[in-house]
Nucleic acid binder design. Structure first.
Ligand SMILES: [Mn+2]
Ligand SMILES: [Mn+2]
Ligand SMILES: [Zn+2]
Ligand SMILES: [Zn+2]
Lengths: 161, 161
DNA sequence: ACTGCTATTGAAAGACATTACCATTAAGGA
DNA sequence: TCCTTAATGGTAATGTCTTTCAATAGCAGT
């Protein structure tokens, strides 16, 4: 029984085809995907997957810390699989790729410091560091646009309008 | 000439009544406000203020680092004035109040560490630490709901539905 | 494998949030 | 004051997210 199954079962939840599909789509993705994108890609595996179910599944997975939300400049959000450990999220604003910074120690220090100095109790830290990944730092302006466009097409067939 | 005026003028932008109104509303607020809320409150000072202009003003002010976006559990975003210094944002999920953690050193250390270890170049850090402020930590469940409701009414007349 | 309970689904409609359009207005330098 | 043009704001369009509810399908028990 996978860690996921036991996690769901422990709270009386069921491992459905829709949930499996969402997880598969996310684990195949190289960039965060919006609910709409996840639905579109997921339907290649499970044709009846519904958008509402994707929203509900993402909410559940986020609650269980299986999935992390990525906040972009535009209104809508992207979602990605994540580890359960405390770690900053690195987002490249050019290629869109996301990485988790391994080793939560520096972040834990920051939070400890904040809590000690202010009395505030932090229970939901959002630490998303946007910038340029090593691969994207060399590119010039025009190349950057190309690379961004290229990446965009690669994974999710660019469902954004 | 205020720092704001010079900041705008430096990029050929104008200090309009709409922009002044948005700034005034934000500086009077004790919690982050949505664009719709800002518009409603702003119209008490300037009756013709338009929602679209508020969106554009917020985008501009965010670009100039005069305003910071606060990401809530629900879809839509709140906006608040902020300093230009690098600092984590503390958000109380009960009373909604927001504070900036003074002293950017721990955060700067975290970012330096990330950049050194990964080669990633961070240029837009989003560090929003949600939890309970000191005042809200004592409250029980029922009290908490009361306090949240109370706060909500206090500032912006609860435009959210 | 069959049955029953109920968590879950998904289509459709609705409620909001955000953006595009464009004729009109008003900052602010000359 | 006069001009240039950045900026506005109403409206319509688009996109995102939620609510609803009848139908479906996990899965525990037999
Ligand atoms: Mn989007
Ligand atoms: Mn957000
Ligand atoms: Zn990159
Ligand atoms: Zn509080």
């Amino acid at each position: 029984m996978s860690e996921l199954e036991s996690g769901l079962a422990a709270s009386g939840r069921r491992l459905t085809r829709a949930r499996r599909t969402v997880l598969r789509v996310l684990s195949d993705a190289s960039v965060p995907l919006s609910p709409r994108e996840i639905t579109a890609v997921g339907r290649q595996h499970y044709g009846h997957l519904g958008l509402v179910t994707v929203y509900r599944t993402l909410e559940l997975l986020e609650l269980m810390h299986w999935v992390r939300r990525v906040h972009g400049a535009d209104g809508c959000h992207g979602y990605m699989l994540c580890g359960r450990a405390l770690s900053p999220t690195l987002v490249c604003r050019l290629c869109g790729r996301v990485a988790e910074f391994p080793g939560g120690q520096p972040l834990r220090s920051l939070i400890d410091r904040v809590q000690a100095d202010t009395g505030f109790r932090v229970d939901d830290p959002l630490v998303q560091l946007s910038g340029l990944c090593p691969a994207c730092q060399g590119a010039s302006g025009a190349d950057e646009a190309d690379e961004a466009a290229h990446r965009e097409n690669g994974s999710a067939e660019s469902i954004h309008t």
